[in-house]
Design a protein around this nucleic acid. Structure first.
Lengths: 263, 263
DNA sequence: AAAGTATTGACAAGAATCGCAAATTAATAT
DNA sequence: ATATTAATTTGCGATTCTTGTCAATACTTT
């Protein structure tokens, strides 16, 4: 309770005066610097601020669309950020990568803010926009039919373009995952696009938060053997951990460092 | 934080006064020149500035702050809305139309909110998003390289896709207009895209607010005889009204509230 | 063209800050 | 009252930032 209040207060402080040192905040609130650091990291986990050396800055939410993308984005944000943080380690300056239109991929895009000279292909508006903020990056948005609710494009135009591209790493999410059918997707269009992606990437990296395991949706697009690396979060069950291991899938479990706050 | 804040501040300084020496900045901010150099190099790494001997210049003035699309959008909003309101009358349910990424086209998109079953092609994020809110519409976003500052896509991908499409009406804006060179555009990419558009549309409808008349920018993309109809606002000078009339251009003057006058 | 001045990147020393993990304290449940 | 869990503090090695120095490079002036 006290901690929650303090964090709200911190948010206010940062908003009003964005050049505070950790030490100043610690003194102001009469707690140790370590606590402030914990708070700042927790707030970062919730996607409310971005840490910078010496403090934190408020995050300005992308201008495009106050639609349902961000409601999806808010769900399980900590898990997604944990996954994004780990997955980001696979990307170096100058890499060519592909991201889908999922909110997890958007988190990854945010986590790549300090990379340079990336060549990015994506079909997500917000992801494209986020990465295009950095002028050294080269961001290609795949064309196609616009889906307002997911802020993405799919369809024939997209698929034909994809065929002519090639990337080192493709980061794909899915709406369901099972050992039998691999990665599955609710929407046919999305799945078709992702199928094509598999053919034009050196590595397929799956970003699958723990809630997706055991669900099977309409359209499968990637079998287990297509997956080069799988990132998931710490909430995954022991059973599934076991199964993935047995299936020989290179799995990374991403724990979020900052514990969830409660009211 | 101090360092992040300082770098933001540096960006501002450079933007406002692009020929500052490192030594001046160092004194102004009360840090060593080495620090300024580090900052400048870091900002260059983020693709925000380009180093030059003695200082740095901004890469793209507009890309620094928040998404500049909406700052452009706010300028002369009345005029744009007047134009959009009139131009919208040309569009009926079920039409296939093309809109560019300009803020005027975005106004038009907003004015088309109550149309149904439109088939739309555009290269502007916000325009696409606005029209895709209506589920009965079919909105295609042209793929290509993302330009953050204008929230649009251009480039080779876009151009190839355009060639395979066809629309009844294309609504294009421009950054300059003269009788000799017709519609001109500051950015080469934009102009190239628009040139292609002319070939795949039955009608070209020009949306040109009065501030553009008499300006000539780098790249021409449409001659007078390409223009089927021209919409502008009431602030246009008598001279230009005369000239357009003499040139035989079908012009519509759009007044803020009252009805438009037709010549 | 040569001399003179300014600016540069690179490096190293020192300071500030960071993340991590273990220890301590507070809160809550048994 | 005691055990358990969450929150905070503390200490320490690692990292990042700042600054000053210095040789190399780029501009200016003569």
């Amino acid at each position: 309770m006290v901690t929650h209040k303090r964090r709200q207060f911190l948010l206010d402080m940062i908003q009003k005066q964005p050049c505070l040192r950790v030490s100043e905040m610690a003194e102001e609130l009469d707690v140790s610097e370590g606590t402030i650091r914990n708070d700042l990291n927790a707030l970062q986990g919730e996607g409310l601020v971005k840490r910078v050396h010496g403090g934190a800055v408020v995050i300005e939410r992308s201008a495009i669309g106050n639609n349902s993308f961000f409601t999806r984005y808010d769900q399980n944000l900590d898990r997604k950020n944990a996954i994004a943080r780990e997955a980001a380690k696979l990307v170096s300056d100058g890499d060519s990568i592909l991201l889908d239109a999922s909110s997890t991929a958007y988190c990854l895009a945010c986590a790549l803010a300090d990379r340079k000279d990336l060549r990015v292909v994506t079909n997500g508006f917000n992801t494209a926009n986020e990465l295009a903020k950095n002028n050294s990056n080269n961001v290609a948005l795949i064309g196609g039919m616009v889906n307002y609710s997911s802020s993405s494009v799919t369809g024939l135009l997209s698929e034909r373009i994809i065929e002519d591209l090639h990337v080192q790493k493709a980061f794909l999410s899915c709406s369901g995952f099972s050992l039998e059918r691999g990665m599955t997707e609710v929407h046919l269009n999305e799945a078709q696009l992702k199928r094509k992606v598999i053919h034009i990437t050196d590595q397929l990296i799956a970003l699958i938060d723990s809630s997706k395991f055991g669900k099977e949706d309409m359209t499968p697009f990637a079998k287990l053997e297509n997956i080069d690396k799988l990132f998931t979060d710490g909430e995954i069950s022991h059973e599934w951990k076991e199964r993935l291991s047995m299936a020989g899938i290179d799995t990374v479990i991403c724990h979020h460092e900052a514990n969830a706050t409660y009211d």
